[in-house]
Simulated assay, not measured.
Amino acid sequence: MSNSLSIIPLQNLAIAFIPVFLVIIILFKWSLNGKFALYALSRMLVQLLLVGYFLNYLFAGANAWIVVMLLMLMVLFASWIALGNIKEQRLPLLKRTMAAIAVGGGFTLFVITQGVLTLHPWYQVQTMIPLAGMIFANCMNSVSLSAERFYAELSRGEDYFKARKIAFQASMIPNINALFAVGLISLPGMMTGQILSGTSPFIAARYQIVVMCMIFASAGISSAYFLVLSKNKKKTAGQ
């Protein structure tokens, strides 16, 4: 196998959208929200193209302050998106969500980059930003699940502790399932990418173990911290 990935021609890249548009057609045929899916698809294209150009520029001349500011922006956007399912409480919960993602994701990112990988310099952008993206996105999903379920349980009349237990368990289901499936059903992103680029599967497996640990930990810490912060403001659920 080649030690480097070949560049995908644009005409070949277009082929990847054939199964995507089949799903879009199904959404429209079944009177589901096909327009929203098209919007999401368009955003994905624009965001990835823009981030490709931006990261290319960033890699060439990054410094610590730029990396810190970018991490803060990632936390802000992740927090805003996480509250998409409870839009009526988005602004009141934003600060709490940012704190949960910053603590859970930031702590995990620090342990991985400075303890496991020992980056030098500590803000080495080629490693820091991709890992931060994986961690904060995972925190976002976990907090989103826990927030939606937590306030749903409170609205049903459950007390704080019962709602917290149910919400935390629900938020961790995807990550626990991923632990069971990895290596048997799926080869996750980092391991697949490294193998495709020619890295030894044994080395790729070590990196994937690190990734699975950081995903599980960041999800659990962020979700738990969000629920702890929600204790004194549980009354907002009924508003």
Rank of each mutant, 00 (worst) to 15 (best):
Met214Tyr: 03
Ile66Tyr: 12
Glu153Thr: 01
Gly238Leu: 12
Lys235Tyr: 12
Ala178Arg: 03
Pro130Ala: 13
Met72Ser: 15
Ser146Asn: 05
Ile24Ala: 12
Leu179Thr: 10
Ala167Phe: 09
Val111Trp: 02
Met74Thr: 13
Lys29Trp: 07
Gly106Val: 01
Pro9Val: 14
His120Met: 04
Leu58Gly: 03
Leu49Phe: 15
Phe202Ala: 14
Ala170Asn: 10
Ile15Pro: 10
Ala137Leu: 12
Ala152Leu: 08
Pro121Leu: 07
Val103Ile: 14
Val51Arg: 09
Thr118Val: 05
Tyr57Trp: 15
Pro92Met: 13
Val143Tyr: 00
Leu94Arg: 12
Leu91Asp: 06
Ile101Gln: 03
Ala147Cys: 12
Ile8Ala: 13
Cys213Arg: 10
Val211Cys: 11
Val46Ile: 15
Asn177Ile: 15
Leu58Met: 12
Tyr53Gly: 13
Ala152Tyr: 06
Asn33Lys: 12
Arg164Asp: 00
Tyr151Trp: 14
Ile185Ser: 05
Gly84Met: 10
Leu38Asn: 08
Phe226His: 07
Trp80Pro: 02
Leu55Glu: 07
Ile129Pro: 03
Gln47Val: 15
Leu73Thr: 09
Met172Tyr: 04
Gly52Ile: 14
Leu227Asp: 01
Ile209Ala: 10
Val228Leu: 03
Thr118Lys: 07
Phe54Val: 15
Arg206Thr: 01
Ala205Asn: 07
Ser186Leu: 06
Ala178Val: 08
Gly189Ile: 15
Ile66Arg: 11
Leu83Ala: 06
Asp159Glu: 01
Leu48Gln: 13
Leu49Cys: 13
Phe54Leu: 15
Leu45Pro: 04
Gly52Pro: 09
Leu22Val: 14
Ile209His: 04
Ile7Tyr: 01
Val182Gly: 07
Val210Gly: 01
Leu50Met: 15
Trp80Gly: 01
Phe28Leu: 03
Thr113Val: 10
Pro121Cys: 02
Leu10Phe: 13
Asp159Tyr: 00
Lys95Cys: 10
Ala132Cys: 13
Gln239Leu: 12
Ile221His: 00
Leu117Ser: 00
Ala204Glu: 05
Val116Gln: 00
Ala16Lys: 08
Ala170His: 09
Leu154His: 09
Ile166Leu: 11
Ile112Gly: 01
Ile25Arg: 14
Leu10Val: 14
Ala205Arg: 05
Ala178Pro: 11
Ser42Glu: 08
Phe202Trp: 10
Lys29Tyr: 08
Ile215Glu: 09
Lys165Gly: 08
Pro9Ile: 14
Tyr39Leu: 11
Leu76Ser: 05
